[in-house]
């Protein structure tokens, strides 16, 4: 192991250098390969996975219908949840304390209650409130519905998931809005931009850089969260495979069908998220501008 120090008189070009041998990495690669082979062996040779059954039911119409319902619930709850989340985030940042506290309490409540509990609660709303109506003084009802007619598994699922989602989105959006430099608000209002223009053209586009990554995770969590609605007999993906294995007793292969579809959708969502992040990468300017001006102000 005697190393000769190269003298400067010799011509050296480090571009000729070869990679360094790292024994720990070689060992790591061997271990990972063995684990991969072991898992593949287990999955392929174990008869009980019943891959032919998985394949048979993968594109079964009722499974696909369940998948559609899961996607529909995800999109609906995400859309409603985000819209409400924007309002709640803005409210939490309001300088008028009644708005601020109303929003803080709302978010705290719906972030604190487990979504499963919420779903069951909304599904049983009729017990508390048999009739939903607008009544004038003197007990004259203007419009009214029986709660049991309004609250179906679908409406209970949409309400429960949207409220749960709105509380999380409110926190994500609030963090995004706070990440935008105070000077941007100053510049926008000094220029006479309206509050809406300031929000939609200046602050929100810059906040998106911070908002998008956790929102992506939030959509994925929501998609998986839709499986909770199977407890209120809502026909989502999990419910669809449950109905089938309750009949055929093919529990493992049917769960694999659901797993495959969840993974497919989550993978697609992740790809879309990466593309959107790249689009808003322009906003990356923000952090660099701050770094540059910070450096300058200390000189």
């Amino acid at each position: 192991m005697s190393l000769m120090t190269q003298q400067s008189s010799e011509q050296i070009d480090v571009s000729q250098a070869r990679g360094r041998v790292s024994w720990s990495r070689i060992l790591g690669t061997v271990v990972l390969s063995l684990i991969t082979l072991g898992v593949l062996w287990f999955v392929i040779t174990n008869e009980r996975f019943e891959w032919p059954v998985v394949w048979e039911y993968l594109f079964n119409p009722s499974v696909l219908l369940g998948l559609m319902m899961s996607l529909f619930l995800t999109v609906t709850a995400m859309t409603l949840g985000t819209m409400l989340g924007v309002v709640l985030a803005a409210g939490q940042l309001s300088d008028y304390w009644p708005y601020r506290w109303a929003c803080i309490i709302f978010v705290g409540f719906f972030r604190g209650v487990p979504p499963l509990v919420q779903l069951i609660f909304w599904y049983n709303l009729a017990y508390l409130l048999p009739r939903i109506s607008v009544t004038l003084p003197g007990d004259r009802e203007v419009v009214g519905w029986s709660t049991n007619d309004l609250i179906t598994p679908l409406t209970a699922a949409v309400i429960g998931l949207s409220l749960h989602q709105s509380a999380y989105m409110a926190e994500i959006i609030r963090a995004g809005l706070l990440s935008v430099d105070r000077g941007q608000h100053d510049a926008a209002s000094a220029m006479g931009f309206s509050r809406w223009n300031t929000f939609s053209r200046i602050v929100l586009p810059q906040a998106m850089r911070v908002i998008i990554p956790p929102s992506g995770s939030q959509i994925i969590a929501l998609l998986k969260g839709t499986s909770l609605v199977s407890v209120i007999a809502m026909g989502d993906l999990l419910h669809a495979v449950q109905v089938i294995y309750n009949r055929t007793y093919d529990v493992v292969p049917m769960l694999l069908v659901a797993v495959i579809w969840y993974l497919v959708v989550v993978t697609l969502l992740t790809l879309v998220q990466r593309r959107i992040e790249e689009h808003f990468g322009r906003g990356d300017a923000q952090s660099r501008v701050r770094a540059v001006s910070g450096k300058e102000s200390t000189t």
């Binding site: 430099d181 000077g183 941007q184 100053d186 510049a187 926008a188 200046i202 586009p205 810059q206 322009r282 906003g283 300017a285 923000q286 501008v289 001006s293 102000s297």
Partner: peptide, 9 residues
């Protein structure tokens, strides 16, 4: 402004 406050996007 001291910190320019241009809109970076």
């Amino acid at each position: 402004f001291q910190q320019f406050n241009l809109f970076p996007h």
